[in-house]
C-alpha cells in the first residue's frame, strides 16, 4: 500500500507544479515565453551535435528582446524553439503558458497562425501574390471573412506606409518595402509575439534603421512582444534586453547599455575570450592544486 501511495503522489507532482507558489504564478502571467532547461541535439550521421546545452530564458510580455550570438552558437535553434518551429530534445518551452511539446500538429499550426508573427531575413513573401494577398493569407487560415480580410489588410498596409502599393507583387517592391509587407503580414492575426529573424540582414543601413524603428514603434504602441535574432548593432541598441548565446548556452542576459559602444562582433569576441580565459584559469588552478597536493 505504501508504494502505491508514493507512486500516486509522484504522478501528482507535475500537476501541483502548475499551481505552484504565488511567486511562480506571477512570473507565469508576466512572461510570455518561458524556456526551461532546454537541450537540443541534432545528429549529423552518427555524430551528435549539441546545439543547445540547457537554456533557461524568460521573455516578458511586451518586451523587445534581442538574441545575439555568432553563427553556430545555437542562436537560430533557440529562436526556432521560441517560435514553435522546433521542439526541444529535453526541457520545456512555454509560449503564452502552453508547453509546445504537448501540442499536436493542428494545435501547433494554430499557435503559429494566431499567436506568432514571423519576419524573415529574406522576407519570404509569396511571389505570386500581391502585397494585400500576402497580408490576408494568414487571415484566410484563421477563417476571417472576406470583408474583414480586405479591411484589415488595407489598414495594416497603411500602417506600414504601403497604402498605395496594395496590388503590387513582391517583385515590384524594393527590399525595404517587401520587409514592410512582411511586417504587416506578421501582424495579420494580432499575434502576441513577433519573431524577427535577422530582419535587417538583407537591407542597407538606412532602410534597416527604418524597419527597426517600425518594429520598435509597434512594440511600444500595441504592446506586442518582439523577439529578434540579430547581428545588427542598431537593433540591439533599441532592444530592452539582449540575450547572448555562445556554444549552446546563454552567456548573459543584459540591458543593451552594458554593451556600450562595442559592436556586436566585438562584444561576442570579448565574451568568448573571457570565457576561454576563465576556462584556462580554471585548468591552471586545477593543475596547481594537483601540483600542490602532490
Amino acid at each position: 500500500m505504501t508504494s502505491a501511495t508514493s507512486t500516486d503522489s509522484n504522478s501528482a507532482l507535475p500537476a501541483m507544479g502548475l499551481d505552484a507558489t504565488p511567486d511562480e504564478a506571477y512570473n507565469a502571467s508576466e512572461n510570455i515565453v518561458r524556456v526551461r532547461g532546454v537541450k537540443r541535439t541534432y545528429y549529423i550521421g552518427e555524430n551528435p551535435v549539441h546545439a543547445l546545452r540547457g537554456i533557461d530564458l524568460d521573455i516578458k510580455r511586451g518586451e523587445f528582446m534581442a538574441i545575439m550570438g555568432p553563427s553556430g552558437s545555437g542562436k537560430s535553434t533557440l529562436f526556432n524553439m521560441v517560435g514553435g518551429l522546433d521542439k526541444p530534445t529535453s526541457g520545456t518551452v512555454f509560449i503564452d503558458e502552453v508547453d509546445i511539446a504537448q501540442l499536436d500538429p493542428g494545435e501547433l499550426a494554430w499557435l503559429r497562425c494566431r499567436k506568432i508573427g514571423y519576419i524573415f531575413q529574406t522576407f519570404n513573401l509569396i511571389p505570386v501574390m500581391t502585397a494585400l494577398e500576402n497580408v490576408t493569407l494568414p487571415m484566410i487560415f484563421a477563417g476571417a471573412s472576406l470583408e474583414e480580410q480586405m479591411e484589415k489588410g488595407r489598414r495594416l498596409l497603411e500602417l506600414v506606409g504601403l497604402g498605395h502599393r496594395l496590388h503590387n507583387k513582391p517583385g515590384q517592391l524594393s527590399g525595404g518595402q517587401q520587409q514592410r509587407v512582411a511586417i504587416a503580414r506578421a501582424l495579420a492575426n494580432d499575434p502576441a509575439i513577433i519573431l524577427a529573424d535577422e530582419p535587417t540582414g538583407n537591407l542597407d543601413q538606412k532602410v534597416g534603421e527604418e524597419i527597426i524603428m517600425m518594429l520598435k514603434r509597434l512594440n511600444k504602441e500595441s504592446g506586442v512582444t518582439v523577439i529578434t535574432a540579430t547581428h545588427d548593432d542598431k537593433m540591439y541598441k533599441r532592444s530592452d534586453r539582449v540575450a547572448i548565446v555562445i556554444d549552446g548556452e546563454i552567456q548573459a542576459v543584459i540591458p543593451p547599455d552594458l554593451l556600450g559602444d562595442n559592436t556586436v562582433d566585438g562584444f561576442l569576441q570579448q565574451m568568448k575570450d573571457d570565457k576561454e580565459a576563465a576556462e584556462a584559469a580554471a585548468i591552471t588552478a586545477t593543475n596547481e592544486t594537483i601540483v600542490a597536493s602532490s
Binding site: 502571467s29 503564452d96 503558458e97 502552453v98 494545435e107 499550426a109 505570386v128 501574390m129 484566410i140 487560415f141
Partner: peptide
C-alpha cells in the same frame, strides 16, 4: 491564480476550397 487565464489552444485553421482553388490556379 484567479487572474490567470491560460491560453486556450484551439485548432480552427482552415483553407476553404475556393481559396485553395484560387491559389492553385494562380500558381499555374
Amino acid at each position: 491564480m484567479a487572474t490567470m487565464s491560460p491560453t486556450r489552444v484551439e485548432r480552427q485553421i482552415s483553407l476553404p476550397f475556393n481559396q485553395a482553388f484560387k491559389i492553385a490556379l494562380r500558381n499555374i
